[in-house]
Design a protein around this nucleic acid. Sequence first.
DNA 1: AGAGGGGTGT
DNA 2: ACACCCCTCT
Lengths: 361, 361
Amino acid sequence: MLEARLASATVLKKLLDAIKELVTDCNLEANEDGIGLQAMDNSHVALVTVQLEANEFDSYRCDRNMPLGVNLGSLTKILKCAKDNDVVTIKASDDADSLTLLFESPNSDRIGEYDMKLMDIDQEHLGIPDTQYDATITFSSTEFARICRDLSALGESVKIEVDKQGIRFTADGEIGNGSVLLKHSAGRGAVRAPPASRSRKAAKPKVKKEAKRDPDDEEEGSEPDVANVESDEEDVKPDVQEEEEEKPEVDEDDEDEEEQEDDEAEQPKKRKAGAVAKKETNGRAKKAKDGEDDGEAGVSIILQQSVSLTFSLKYLLNFAKSAPLSKQVTLNMSNEVPLLVAFEFEQGHINYYLAPKIGDD
Amino acid sequence: MLEARLASATVLKKLLDAIKELVTDCNLEANEDGIGLQAMDNSHVALVTVQLEANEFDSYRCDRNMPLGVNLGSLTKILKCAKDNDVVTIKASDDADSLTLLFESPNSDRIGEYDMKLMDIDQEHLGIPDTQYDATITFSSTEFARICRDLSALGESVKIEVDKQGIRFTADGEIGNGSVLLKHSAGRGAVRAPPASRSRKAAKPKVKKEAKRDPDDEEEGSEPDVANVESDEEDVKPDVQEEEEEKPEVDEDDEDEEEQEDDEAEQPKKRKAGAVAKKETNGRAKKAKDGEDDGEAGVSIILQQSVSLTFSLKYLLNFAKSAPLSKQVTLNMSNEVPLLVAFEFEQGHINYYLAPKIGDD
DNA sequence: AGAGGGGTGT
DNA sequence: ACACCCCTCT
């Protein structure tokens, strides 16, 4: 049986707003690690994964692995019945034919209880290899959303080029061409040599498989398909959550405190997530007065080699709907390999994978 | 070649929002005076003119007259890619087959560059005579917008009557009749005898031609046509900008300092525009606390003789979309002559001309 | 409370 | 496809 208590409904609401248009039905995978979700989008082009960490819940109990097949539209409707600051309790009995959501006002003077029918969904669990990316760019998620929105007025595709100078998004279309260049920020998340951050990653157990995909993988995943997905269930979830935990730190310790953070890396994740949240708050307060509040925390670029990839803006626009979940987004790119768009938030993360268009000059 | 730099994208955005539904394609006329636009609306009923003064740009360079044929929809799309406080640079090379817009964030960490295809547009340049109007009413632009919106719920036409008491807008329709009366403000922009303000205007060179239109002009422009437009290119732009520069002052010196402002009238325009902007700011700050911020600066009426004219609300609604550009709007009316609706803003002005309906009451 | 974005209707 | 209205996010 599952019983998970979350202090605020707002994360769940934002999560569902983010993915409900990408995925109609899918299994929520509840287990001792927390609640996860993995699904191809409806047109089978993009892959979304979500993980809510068990130890980020106010309380969490899950006796066994439970695949909970939900219709995300229905779940969204039910979540609309919760106020943002309601305390949410998610319950499922062992037969798992329905999911119960309990919404309590903060002072418990109102309690809503909603039951949702579950469905059986046959869903292969895809293994997602832990890729070492050639370029990792972390910047304002609202800036990301803004760029995708702006450029989608011009064309259907965006070319993303990353080099030492910064990251450039370019779209061409009938009415004209547009390009947006974000320069890496001096003083904060500036361009950093990869080895420094990689060495920290080596401390993790069973991370990294191969850094690059096989060429034929990209062949068949040429356009509308996530190329580097494998069917290796065993090591997927650990990999994903370890890897995602990693990325924001790169930006974190760009400030001043690398060694300290490395120490913390051995500690429970709860502690680390707290640090992330705190830092984000600082970032906002710090930047609040300089007028430009999209530039929060600047643009961090970690570059192993320059990349140039082209993607469908339609999907990026969808991914950018996760911006309310996190102030920062991380784009992970290697040439001819699917893009990983990652959002970290206090309770977990959401990752999107999208294969590049081919012939992307 | 043209290169014009504007400290903030917001004026351009507002301008295009204001006219993009009225005009589809038109030439931007860049020359040493600045950037101008003149176009009939798509149904050839109303006339719009815009002027952005060269000396109000942060920097301005235009070597020769360049007609830049733009699709306003495309330009609007591109301007949506600029944030309000972005610095905008407009560039066109001498062959003028495309227009480049550069959007830089205030701290230059983001640079957007957009190229827009230009088109050849054959467009006669209409001469607009400098008319002395029988009634000139200056009041809150949002009030104007509100009245147009409110009355358009009742009928398709509005009768505008101006006399010493004030200005009355009346609409009749099936569900009932409505009328809004704005009284001239005591203490501020009150009704003023025309000679006083006319004498100031007399200080300008080459102003005023004839005060009234020829009757046959109105005949052919009876309903859907701007009647008093002549094909006299020479004196149009100077006249327009002189005249428009004049109007807000009427309201300005209603405060206490008539003579001083008359002195300034001889000074360069740059100086005067600055004064206008400053006064507007004061007006906002002053009124901020009395709750009614539509009544800013009151209602100023300069009346030579009473007028009563009827106009299509559809067009007035469109004109009122310029309200974000200026806190004040000026209506200039003479019986049986097209209405001039004028908005002044720091970088220039926008004027709308609309012929009255006949049988107007 | 205001502005921007998304969705719906013409 | 464009315009208008409503809702959400800032």
